[in-house]
Amino acid sequence: MIWQTLQNPELGCSSYIIGDEVTGQGLVVDPLGALGVDHYVLAAQDLGVDIRMVVETHVHADHASSARALAALLGVPHGISHAAPARFDHQDLKDQEDLTFGMLSVTVWETPGHTPDSLSFVVRDLRRSRAPWAVLTGDSLFVGDVGRPDLADADDQAIRQAAQKQHDSVHRLLTLSDGVELWPAHYGSSPCGGIFMNKSPHSTIGFERQANPFVSMDEETFVDQTLRLLKPPPEDAALLRQNNLAGIS
């Protein structure tokens, strides 16, 4: 498997280029406006990856996305959740859908909570095993933390419901085996998580099961704690999500 993490340390954002090492077919996950489309095209050329699709774990509220521009430049589909109210051409992704790139298999899991359109991607390299190797959790489960529930809809009732969904999504992700690598969309001081988010960009499902404080909480405590521990929202959160929904980059 070809795997490269491309990060913007300033905002604590991670994006990914993943490909099948024999056919070179692959995808880009959550490309960042801050890095620009050229960065992804040249990185993919360096890696020998033929980008067949650009996907996003959700419509972001903390940074500009370059997914639409990258997909348009390469003439490949732009996949986002069917639940995202996006106003541009895209491919709807649904739960349990398999995206195939050579012998690389990427399964879509709907993990709402941070936003109603939040997805996780379960990655398998079928050349090695049928078992999941890694999961891209977007803003659902972080290293040491979970995604905040208040950025998609600021209404109190909506935030509480989103936090309940986040609890269920986190526990769905924890049904994966201990050894599965965890690669979220954020790390460090990103405003999309709470105060416990670790500076490391990755972990494993097993380690989070043991060490993530939110994992052992019952739903009520989970909701209470995620709401209590909210950081100030990212600057221009509503505008960023609105622009990303409109496909403006």
């Binding site: 070179g24 040249l42 050329q45 360096d46 020998g48």
Partner: peptide, 22 residues
């Protein structure tokens, strides 16, 4: 272009040197 693309099809006489940033 990438070596794979060159193999799949290239103009006659072209030399393959897949670009890398480094």
């Amino acid at each position: 272009r990438q070596g794979r693309s060159f193999t799949e099809g290239h103009m006659p006489g072209a030399l393959s040197a897949p670009y890398r940033q480094q």
